Computed example of a mutant assay.
Amino acid sequence: MGDVLVRLVTLRPFSQAAAVVEVDGVDRVVALGSIESVSDVMADATVRSGAEATVRRTLEGGASALPALTEVELDVPVRPSKLICLGYNYRGHAPDGVDPTTNDPEYPDVFVKTANTINAPGDPVVIPEVAEDVDYEGEIAIVIGRRAHRVSLEHALEHIGGYTILNDVSDRAWQRRQSQWAMGKCFDGFAPLGPWVVTADEIDDPQDLLVEVIRDGEVTVSQSTATTIFSAAFIVHYLSQTMTLEVGDVISTGTPQKLPRWQDAHRPLAPGDAVTVRVQGIGELTTTFTSHGGTA
């Protein structure tokens, strides 16, 4: 069966940790018994071993009775104490008015999204009545699996428990109102996260993954993490110098620039739009957008 804990999810309504396993071409869900959270599986080798045993026993007992992934409702895979984000981490993606061909910055551009932004993978994002220019940013998110405080660059990857996907939804008009971005980044629900955490051992090289975004059937972003300025290892190392990264904390690693055609023809998100972030080796996160009141 190989590693049965590649994709870890959290089920609603009781925040039950579970694993997603493919059986005869169908993704099925195995609840992990008394294990309280995905973070516990990542952080504790004994817990992970017990979870693996639970999945194997369940599969041996008959996988056809397991619920399909499409039949369950997912919560966010982890509830981070900190949601940290990077801006302008892909070459070619630069702030307004800055030449994208200039030298790389010495340090990452770091900001935070508040807890109210976190959105489950199947939940729509409500476009606020006051929003003027809502946009999407498809990103790979690091999930901390081992407490990190002032870790060296050499050992930083050892503190990553897995990877997931985040859509850093932003209102550009509110973002540009001030030098700090919080007002444009922190509307309720502006951080869809998931659908699962892929364990770190499944990603051979986080600097060799293709990130794509599809908006209403059109690929608008396509760029490899090989073009990032700051690697996953450096990001964990750098952030841990000032703050202790706890298990389950999430670091979103920045978005590539839109492809030229879509950058030149920018169109704010509107009710009824759908955005899929697709990352090689991790999966897909699809978010739909609705109006205030929940109608498309």
Results as ranks from 00 to 15, higher is better:
R7Y: 07
N119P: 04
P256K: 08
V130Q: 12
T253W: 09
Q207R: 07
L74T: 06
E22I: 09
V169P: 05
T276A: 15
A17P: 00
Q207M: 14
I144D: 03
G61T: 05
F14P: 00
S39I: 03
H93W: 08
E137G: 11
P108K: 06
F230V: 05
K113F: 01
P121G: 04
D40W: 12
V197W: 05
G33N: 05
R176I: 00
H292P: 00
W262Q: 05
H155P: 01
R79D: 12
G2W: 00
M183W: 11
H237K: 13
Q175I: 06
Y136H: 14
A53V: 06
Y238I: 01
T227N: 11
A65H: 09
N103R: 15
D3T: 10
T287Q: 07
D204H: 11
T164H: 05
R215C: 12
D171T: 08
V197A: 04
V275M: 13
M243I: 15
Q180G: 04
R79L: 12
A68V: 13
R278I: 02
P95W: 08
E212P: 02
G50A: 09
V219A: 08
L74C: 01
T101P: 04
R48F: 03
I84D: 00
V29A: 07
R215N: 10
P268A: 08
Q16C: 00
M243F: 14
A270R: 15
A68S: 15
W262Y: 15
R146T: 12
Q16G: 04
T117Q: 07
D44M: 04
T58F: 10
T54D: 10
V76M: 11
S291W: 00
P206E: 09
L11M: 05
T54K: 13
A63G: 13
P195Q: 03
A17S: 06
V134P: 02
D27R: 14
T10Y: 05
F190C: 10
H266V: 12
T228N: 06
L209A: 04
F190S: 01
A120W: 05
E202W: 10
Q263C: 02
I203P: 10
T164E: 03
T199K: 00
I165L: 09
W196T: 08
A43R: 11
R91T: 09
A131R: 03
L69M: 05
P260C: 00
L245G: 10
Q263E: 13
D249C: 10
Y90R: 01
V151D: 06
E36Q: 15
A17W: 03
I35K: 07
T227I: 00
D109A: 13
V134S: 08
V277G: 10
G62V: 09
E158N: 09
E60D: 13
V4M: 09
V9R: 02
A53Q: 14
D188T: 12
Y136S: 03
I282T: 00
F234T: 11
H93Y: 06
R278C: 02
I127P: 01
S64Q: 13
D273T: 11
G122H: 14
